[in-house]
């Protein structure tokens, strides 16, 4: 009987989780009036909604910058934080442990408390309205460093010793041995970083002041801010904005779970 209640609860949770997404997908194929009439079946207005969207909003620009920012952030973040996490674990000394403890305090710093000085700093550097200013603050987070450090604990140190005896340089050991073995951790870090960067809204909105450079979440709120909202077109835009991050997650789901598990063991 416990399992019946369990299945009921799981079913409710799963339906509640998926339903708004189903609504988003079918509404993208319906006209605004059909969306408001609560039509829950696929319709025939997908192409029309797409034409309206492309006609009214710079979809290509937003797609390009969102992709550039998300991919750029992910690659740089993985490179920088994995090296640091490995360094903290493999070369650990008392001084480094203390320094790590200090850096971890950074997890507690709310972005709100750094936003205004960052805006002024990037203003002084002439980087307002540049995608670089969006990427830079998102590259190195104490959370990712910690994730890689924790995961590195399970990495056998004898292999490193053996490789040193074989004459490999430290960086070669990292690239040739550590990176391939730690693939699940990299996948988990990539999923977390990509999704955060792809969906980030506040900072891009603050630093990208000119509409020539904008990201998908910014474009979405611009549609919403219009006088009359075309709901079919809005849901299509939301769908386009959501798909890439969802696909990345679904593709890396298994490694993601493995990576998180590996990091907390």
């Amino acid at each position: 009987m416990q399992s019946v209640a369990g299945y009921v609860f799981l079913t409710l949770a799963a339906v509640a989780s998926v339903f708004p997404l189903y609504f988003m997908v079918v509404s993208a194929t319906n006209s605004s009036n059909e969306v408001l009439a609560s039509k829950l079946l696929p319709g025939t207005h997908l192409l029309e909604n797409f034409r309206t969207l492309v006609g009214a909003q710079p979809l290509g620009v937003a797609l390009w910058y969102s992709a550039l920012i998300a991919v750029g952030t992910t690659i740089l973040a993985l490179a920088v934080t994995s090296v640091a996490g490995y360094g903290f674990e493999v070369f650990h000394t008392k001084a480094k442990d203390r320094f790590m403890g200090f850096l971890l305090l950074g997890i507690m710093i709310p972005f709100a408390a750094t936003m205004i000085p960052l805006f002024r700093m990037f203003g002084d550097l002439g980087l307002v309205n540049s995608w670089i200013a969006v990427v830079l603050p998102a590259i190195s987070t104490p959370f990712l460093v910690m994730l890689f450090r924790q995961a590195s604990r399970s990495f056998p140190h004898e292999i490193i010793e053996a490789a040193r005896i074989d004459g490999l340089k430290e960086l070669q050991i990292f690239l040739r041995i550590y990176v391939p073995t730690m693939r699940p951790t990299f996948a988990a870090a990539a999923v977390i970083t990509f999704m955060a960067a792809w969906n980030n809204f506040l900072w891009p909105k603050v630093i990208l002041v000119n509409n020539d450079v904008q990201t998908l979440p910014m474009l979405l709120t611009n549609i919403q801010a219009g006088y009359v909202t075309d709901y079919g077109m809005l849901m299509l835009a939301v769908l386009i904005a959501s798909l890439p991050a969802m696909l990345v997650f679904l593709a890396l789901q298994k490694s993601f779970a493995q990576g998180i598990t590996g990091a907390i063991k």
Partner: peptide, 12 residues
């Protein structure tokens, strides 16, 4: 199914 909402952006 239950994790799927976490893959959707906040604005979306």
């Amino acid at each position: 199914a239950i994790f799927l909402p976490s893959a959707v952006g906040l604005v979306s």
